[in-house]
């Protein structure tokens, strides 16, 4: 048996590896994956909106009531929360979400308010510290009521669940791919969320006008945020696209414009009730 080394002929063409460009393959795959995920997200968003319209408030309350057994009534029966509850009840006559809303006050020092499924509204102590009049507080509460009326809390949760499930099922947890898709999906969700926020602002403004017969104090909360300097007033930079809320200045502008268009009057502000100061 004679040995004939064939190395020269093998050197030029290696059959065991592909010779196409790895970068082109990578980009094609990436775009494909983006396309598919965007499609899934858009379709599931539509389905969620359908499902949300279909779940009536009573069912919603029944579904989510178990969640809140943990932080119930004992702590919420303070003067402040009773006053807050009364204010929300009054506002509901102008903006009725269709079911009873209960308010909880938390000690958190960052100014914020949340609408949770099942008719639970949470207001932070930081919010009470930031606003200086009852009108200003009423606008924020009306804004949350508008979220309830628009069922935004359910839509938001539904989309959050779809995103989490999608990234877990499709991308796996250790691929490193979630690093590209997470910011992209966040940006998509933020855009959706910002449009819902603007709608809620509009409804809140109507409710404020209905309750006080003027819209004084509507922008108080946003002005306060601007003073604090943490409202993300960086319109034009990329972080704008990742913010779930429009920045404070543009919300103030939008509210003033809307107030002017609708012919709403400005009027004297009411003091914050003593229990809330």
């Amino acid at each position: 048996m004679k040995f004939k080394p064939g190395i020269e002929s093998l050197e030029t063409d290696n059959v065991n590896v592909s010779h196409s460009s790895p970068v082109r393959e990578f980009v094609t795959l990436l775009l494909g994956a983006f396309g598919i995920l965007a499609l899934i997200y858009a379709v599931s968003g539509l389905l969620i909106d359908k499902a949300v319209d279909w779940i009536d408030p009573k069912t919603e309350k029944a579904l989510f009531s178990d969640l809140y057994n943990a932080f119930d009534d004992a702590e919420s029966q303070t003067d402040a929360s009773v006053t807050l509850q009364r204010l929300v009840d009054d506002l509901q006559q102008c903006l009725d979400p269709g079911y009873e809303i209960t308010v909880n006050l938390t000690e958190d020092s960052s100014p914020n308010a949340f609408a949770l499924p099942g008719g639970k509204m949470v207001v932070t102590q930081g919010l009470l510290d930031l606003v200086s009049s009852e009108n200003g507080l009423a606008f924020v509460l009306a804004h949350e009521l508008a979220h309830f009326a628009n069922r935004d809390h359910l839509r938001g949760i539904g989309r959050g669940i779809v995103l989490a499930a999608m990234s877990a099922a499709v991308l796996g947890s250790d691929s490193g791919l979630d690093a590209i898709f997470a910011p992209a999906s966040l940006a998509g969700q933020a855009r959706f969320s910002r449009s819902r926020e603007s709608q809620a602002d509009q409804r809140a403004l109507m409710a404020l006008n209905c309750h006080y017969a003027h819209i004084g104090g509507a922008t108080e909360f946003f002005e306060g945020l601007k003073r604090r300097g943490d409202a993300g007033d960086t319109a034009g930079t990329i972080s704008h696209y990742f913010a779930s809320h429009p920045d404070a200045q543009s919300r103030v502008d939008a509210l003033s414009a809307l107030g002017g268009d609708s012919g709403f009057a400005q009027g004297a502000l009411r003091e914050l009730p003593e229990a809330l100061q």
Binding site: P22, E25, F26, A33, G172, S175
Partner: peptide
């Protein structure tokens, strides 16, 4: 790069170049 490219490939299937 290879790791991410392979993970993407895992999504579509096919030759992991």
């Amino acid at each position: 790069f290879k790791r991410v490219a392979a993970a993407l490939r895992g999504f579509f299937g096919g030759n992991v170049q």
